[in-house]
Amino acid sequence: MSGILNPEIIALLLLDVVFLFFGFIAFILSLKIALFWDSNATTKRQYTLVKQSYLGAVIIKYILALKIPLILFFVFILDELSTILNGAMCAAGVINATPYGTYLLVLKIFNIYLFLYWLYLHKVDEANELQPYTRIKFALFSVLFFPFLAEIVLEFALFSSLDVNTLVDCCGTIYSFASQSYLSVVMRSFGSSYLVGLFYFLFLAIIMSYVLKKENLFALLNLVFIVVSLATLIMFFGTYIYEMPTHHCPFCFLQKDYNYVGYFLYTFLFLGTFHGLAVAFVPATKKMQQSYYKTSLLFLSLYVLSVTFYVVRYVLVNGVWL
């Protein structure tokens, strides 16, 4: 429990409590709206629901507006904690210090995708006089509330089970090929050159599907791109950022030593793929869809260019591949 008295952790938990409180209110409102919304009715209940839908939306926007900076803060804190935890070199060690770490991080990212999707749906809904998606968007939130709740519970579990006295693995062990983690098994069975090839192929395929205006394909490819990008980032591109063939870590490049480049890479990847998915999943006007396409392509290109840059620079400077 000694970890829990760290000020940064208390701050995170405090905000969690606020989220829980407001999230719960939004959940109840969402349920009511999802069940009883009837835009044609002139009943008192519908009238109250209309008012409550404003509150629901404000709360969800509030939570989302904080979640985005907070996830950066969260990773930053994990990095900080790594100096306290014996053996950890970066956030990877802290994440793996307890069984919840990895799930929590994945869940956090997943939730941001979902919340942002909610916001986009909300925008589309609000811009239409018929408010065709009000019911759907609040039904969505009543479902979305559960992974959100799970995130908060996991966060409490993570921080209360951190034990500063036990030795944790550093990222070198966690992501090395020798260990038996899922990731390393997948990597060994694939071989990195195939994956890197797949990575660039996917990127080209995404551009192609834009040209052909195949929105479902575009979104699907983006989904696959998330997975492949992360895998190649850990096993291939990361090593060029670190300039060390054995260093496979998705967290160390968040640190100052690497100019915090990780934050940029992840932001590019996130914005690119999110808009890629939005193309198919947000029922937007053609004009808005066009802007999703463009935003997606812009950030994906930025991402691809950035990771490629590290490889090219290394090869140009050293004349060899890692």
């Binding site: 835009s39 002139t42 209309v50 609000e126 006089e129 408010q131």
Partner: peptide
Amino acid sequence: GKPTTGEVVVDNKVISKLPDNF
């Protein structure tokens, strides 16, 4: 405000059905 029954039409648009924001 909204009528209890009936419609208000302005410029061929039923404004009595508009959501608050609109």
